[in-house]
Simulated scan of single mutants.
Amino acid sequence: MSDECHVCLLGLIFLSSLLTGISGVKVTNVFISSGENVRLSCNNALHDLKSTTWFYNRFRDSAAVELIYLGIKKKDTESHERLSLGSDCSLNIRNISKEDYGSYTCRQYVNGDQKQGPDAHVYLHILHVSSSQTEISAGRSVTLFCQLYSFAEVSCDDRIRSERIELFWVNQAGVKLTRSDSRYQILSSSDHCIITLNTTLLNEDHNREWRCEVTQRDQVKSSVTYTVKSSGEKQAHQSVMEEFLLDVQL
């Protein structure tokens, strides 16, 4: 092969890497909190539902699962009832749960078997908050867990560094809570994409909101709000009502 052909070949390889990215695959990242609805775009030229197939992978090495095959929903998937196909071939998922995180791929075909353009890849990241306590009352300690569930192509630690992703807690006023505040104990675990908030509840914390946010390159991508409902307040209210009813009966 001549030197000129070598130069041309190297030029094509370099151009291809610029267009598709270092990994060879262009990926769209979507962040959403559990309980919400989401729309995943196909990003291909055809708006023909019968040409569209959607695949799902939760883990990098797991086998792909067909969610939609040539415009028809597969009935043997866990999320079957919550899926629908948009008129633009987007995949709509209702009432997102933390188990829905992963990699979604849209592939389109022409004349049944000829692939139309490159696949559209979407990584769906789910933000979820849970509590260590089921009974919450003033004077008791509570720990809130905020976790970002992400497709395991790389470790969470690597993703946080490369994508500049940050998890943090804010109060009702939108002020970021820090470790310097003696009332809160905040612990982050980057390798698992978890940040915890521990505090001892006060009487005035009833109906108080704490919000966990995820940012990418300093832009808020999603958030989840946890509202404290003190069981002590509820029990006290019930006791007052019981005394009132007793007085009425007497």
Rank of each mutant, 00 (worst) to 15 (best):
233 E>W: 08
89 C>H: 09
220 V>P: 00
56 Y>I: 10
121 H>P: 02
202 L>A: 04
130 S>A: 06
60 R>G: 04
60 R>F: 13
112 G>M: 02
19 L>R: 14
249 Q>V: 12
186 I>N: 08
175 V>H: 11
21 G>S: 08
177 L>K: 01
14 F>W: 03
236 A>M: 11
3 D>T: 11
7 V>D: 10
110 V>C: 03
195 I>L: 05
103 S>Q: 14
221 K>G: 06
249 Q>Y: 13
142 V>F: 02
10 L>I: 09
176 K>F: 02
76 D>H: 12
160 I>E: 14
45 A>V: 09
138 A>Q: 10
245 L>C: 04
92 N>D: 10
198 N>K: 15
104 Y>F: 14
106 C>S: 10
98 K>T: 03
246 L>N: 08
227 T>H: 00
156 C>P: 00
40 L>K: 03
240 V>T: 09
39 R>P: 00
52 T>F: 07
64 A>F: 03
204 E>H: 11
23 S>W: 07
92 N>R: 13
38 V>N: 00
214 V>H: 04
1 M>N: 11
221 K>R: 15
111 N>T: 14
77 T>I: 14
183 R>E: 09
198 N>L: 07
30 V>C: 02
122 V>T: 15
245 L>F: 05
203 N>A: 12
94 R>H: 04
201 L>T: 01
20 T>M: 06
231 S>K: 09
25 V>N: 13
91 L>R: 06
11 G>Q: 12
175 V>A: 11
109 Y>Q: 10
204 E>K: 11
228 V>I: 15
87 S>N: 12
130 S>L: 03
38 V>Y: 04
127 L>G: 03
245 L>R: 09
238 Q>K: 13
153 E>S: 14
27 V>Q: 07
110 V>S: 15
